[in-house]
Simulated assay, not measured.
Amino acid sequence: MNYQSLDKSKKEEVAYLFTSVFTSSESEKEGVLVGGLSSELASNIDNKETICFGACENGSLIGAIFFTRLKFNDPIQVYMLAPVAVSTEYQGRGIGQKLINYGLNELRNRSVSIVVTYGDPSFYSKIGFQSLSEDLIQAPLKLSMPIGWLGQTLTGEPIPSIKERPVCVKEFNNPVYW
């Protein structure tokens, strides 16, 4: 298994991966929605605001994850992990957790302080994410399920309270994702 940074040239592979995984696990509607989001994100990979990492085996992309910057007036570096997908036939082997940990280590090396995500607490708690109150860090838009707002520090320091709503990348600036 090879974990690596991906660039815009992988847009089609990334979109296909997310579309097929979310269609299989959720529904065709969800597959189209998340596949479209991943295609837009992949079109804007710049390794600053939008970062993508992939898991490859035998030259094929079998997993991918995005991290996008959340901007605050405070100079703290906060990224959001979303979405993540592992090819259906490779699920259950810990590849998703290894890919997330790879990405978190890469962000730690870039001096990122905090990573947040909006997802299943039972999955993300396995890799160090904890429930995050919006009193501490707000989501970019109103959350439909606040229990899914999670975060983790990459510095070992407690997560500080940031009293403002962040600005997210334009691809996530849509209430359908929240």
Rank of each mutant, 00 (worst) to 15 (best):
N2M: 09
P146G: 07
K163R: 11
E12C: 11
R93W: 04
N2Q: 11
F22L: 05
G156A: 02
N173H: 10
K170D: 03
W149I: 04
L99T: 06
P75S: 12
I95V: 12
D120M: 07
D135C: 11
K11T: 09
G96W: 09
G92L: 08
Q4D: 11
I51G: 00
F53Q: 00
N2E: 15
M80T: 06
F66T: 04
L143V: 09
L143D: 08
L136I: 15
I51T: 05
F66R: 14
G59P: 00
G156I: 05
V169W: 13
Q152N: 04
K170M: 03
S144H: 15
E164L: 02
I147C: 07
T23F: 11
K126L: 12
P83Y: 15
T117A: 11
F53I: 03
F129H: 10
S25H: 14
Y102V: 00
Y102N: 01
N101L: 04
P121M: 13
M1N: 09
F66D: 02
I76G: 05
G31K: 15
F72M: 12
E13F: 07
L17W: 12
L136W: 14
T50I: 05
C56R: 14
L150W: 03
S43F: 10
S131Y: 13
E28K: 15
T23P: 02
N47C: 04
G96V: 00
S133K: 13
